[in-house]
C-alpha cells in the first residue's frame, strides 16, 4: 500500500527500559510487545476488549493491548507482567496470588496481576465490591474468581501493613 506502509518512529519505556521502535500506524501494541519485544505475558484471546488476557498498563492505566495502536504508546511508559517482579523477588501482588492459590491454568493471570496493580495504585484499600467492580471484564475460566478476589484483598492488606507507620507501644 501507499503511504500507509510507512513506519513511524516511537519512543517508549517498557518495564523501565527505554525502547526506540519503528511501527506501522496499524500495528497493535499487543503484537509489538509479543513479536518485536518478545514479551509473551500479555495474551491474545477474545481480541475484543472483553476478556482482559492482553491487559497491560500504559502510564499506569489498564488497557487492552489487543485494541490499542502501538503508535499511541509513543512517549509513554508500559508495564507488562514481565516487569512486575524485581529480579527474583515477586511483586507483592504476585506473592498474594501464589499464597492464595489464585492461579490454575495461568492464562488470565498476567492480566489479573496488572489489573490488580492498577486497582491498588488507584485505591489502596478496596472493598470486596470495589474489587468485583474493577475485575468486571477480566475473565477466568478456571478459578471461579473466589481465590483471585481473596488474593487481591490480601495484597491490599499486605500493602497497607507495609506502608503503615510502625506502631509504638
Amino acid at each position: 500500500m501507499d503511504a500507509s506502509a510507512a513506519r513511524e518512529p516511537i519512543h517508549l519505556v517498557v518495564n523501565g527500559r527505554a525502547r526506540d521502535l519503528a511501527v506501522e500506524p496499524y500495528a497493535l501494541l499487543l503484537d509489538v510487545l509479543r513479536d518485536d519485544l518478545d514479551l509473551k505475558g500479555a495474551k491474545r484471546s477474545c481480541d475484543s476488549q472483553v476478556c482482559g488476557a492482553c491487559t497491560v498498563l500504559v502510564d499506569g492505566l489498564a488497557v487492552s493491548a489487543c485494541t490499542y495502536l502501538a503508535v499511541e504508546a509513543d512517549g509513554r511508559s508500559i508495564l507488562t507482567v514481565e516487569g512486575l517482579a524485581e529480579g527474583e523477588s515477586l511483586h507483592p501482588v504476585q506473592r498474594a496470588f501464589v499464597d492464595a492459590g489464585a492461579v490454575q491454568c495461568g492464562f488470565c493471570t498476567p492480566g489479573m496481576l496488572l489489573t490488580t496493580r492498577a486497582l491498588l495504585d488507584e485505591n489502596p484499600a478496596p472493598t470486596r465490591e470495589d474489587v468485583l467492580h474493577y475485575l468486571r471484564g477480566s475473565l477466568c475460566r478456571c478459578t471461579g474468581y473466589r481465590k483471585i478476589v481473596e488474593a487481591i484483598l490480601a495484597a491490599a492488606r499486605a500493602r497497607g501493613q507495609a506502608s503503615a507507620p510502625a506502631r509504638v507501644e
Binding site: 472483553v50 482482559g52 491487559t55 489498564a62 488497557v63 490499542y68 489489573t115 467492580h133 471484564g137
Partner: peptide
C-alpha cells in the same frame, strides 16, 4: 460512566 464496559474500555 463508572459502569461503562470494563475498566480498560473506560480508560480509552
Amino acid at each position: 460512566a463508572r459502569h461503562v464496559g470494563n475498566v480498560r474500555v473506560r480508560n480509552v
